[in-house]
């Protein structure tokens, strides 16, 4: 059983919702990332998504675009992201790590070299924003052999047919993008999310994480009542940006935000759906 599958199973047993922070590797600089990952785990994160910076982040809003630009200014890359995960793994063998990014850096590295290196670095899942299942067969078979979980996105307009397909091809969990828009957008409609999540659950048994638009403890808690996991990205990255290179301050602020979300998710009535 993969680390992701085991984690969701354990959380389900404990009736807890997975808290999944996202930060961009190398933002604001490469030295920040590994301590930040440990701080997030300590503050209550169950799974971590690490963004691989890309020059053309088409699905991201301004906050994560700027994080990518800061990281790239320090020559962060896919290979270096894997190095950071490897360093994190030296002190943490339990927390699943998913790397999230765009396909081109993987194409440039070569599928086999990438999968090999990712597995050696302790990566558990890979989410490639611009690689729909229709184009992914070569990579999927390599993932399968290496024991890496492919994570697929679902959107408000995903058809029933596509939801089933993702349910079959995905491993670990599915990631529901709660709104039509880019990361960091602010127009989350809980009733819509609720309706779509119910539909998805009827079509697949994979655990379901929900992200895009989760800004604070309240939205985390509201989403947490609907899903198996809550992803928070832009809100964290904004804190890192606002700290403007003061690492100690950034570490405290992202840990505080995650701790407040953890508290909200674990509050007694949050499981009373």
């Amino acid at each position: 059983m993969s680390r992701l599958t085991a984690k969701f199973a354990a959380l389900k047993k404990a009736q807890r919702t997975a808290l999944i922070p996202f930060i961009t590797a190398g933002d604001p600089d490469p030295e920040f990332t590994v301590p930040a990952l440990h701080a997030l785990v300590k503050a209550g994160a169950d799974i971590i998504e690490v963004g691989v910076p890309f020059s053309d982040p088409m699905a991201d809003g301004p906050v994560i675009q700027r994080a990518s630009e800061r990281a790239l200014s320090h020559k962060m890359s896919l290979r270096r992201t894997l190095d950071l995960v490897k360093r994190f793994r030296q002190d943490d063998q339990d927390t699943p790590v998913v790397i999230m990014g765009y396909l081109n850096p993987i194409e440039a590295m070569g599928y086999e070299a990438f999968v090999d290196e990712a597995a050696k670095s302790g990566v558990d899942g890979v989410l490639t924003v611009d690689m729909p299942p229709e184009e992914s067969s070569d990579l999927l078979s390599l993932f399968e052999r290496a024991g890496i979980d492919p994570i697929f996105l679902l959107a408000p307009n995903s058809t029933e047919h596509r939801i089933r397909k993702m349910g079959e091809l995905g491993r670990g969990y599915l990631y529901y993008v709660a709104l039509k828009g880019v990361t960091g957008a602010g127009h989350l409609d809980l009733a819509d999310v609720d309706r779509k999540v119910r539909q998805i659950r009827e079509l697949t048994d994979l655990p379901l994480a929900v992200g895009f638009g989760v800004k604070n403890a309240e939205t985390a808690r509201a989403i947490g009542t609907l899903a198996d996991g809550v992803v928070v990205g832009s809100a964290l990255v904004s804190k890192i940006e606002a700290a403007a290179g003061h690492s100690a301050q950034a570490l405290t602020e992202i840990a505080d935000l995650i701790a407040s979300m953890r508290g909200a998710l674990d509050a007694p009535d949050s499981n009373a759906v």
Binding site: M58, A59, L103, V129, D130, M131, P132, E134, E135, F152, L153, L154, A155, P156, N157, S158, T159, R162, V177, K180, G181
Partner: peptide, 11 residues
């Protein structure tokens, strides 16, 4: 081919 995020697949 078609290499886009899920939200664009349907449109």
């Amino acid at each position: 081919g078609v290499f886009v995020a899920e939200t664009l697949m349907e449109p």
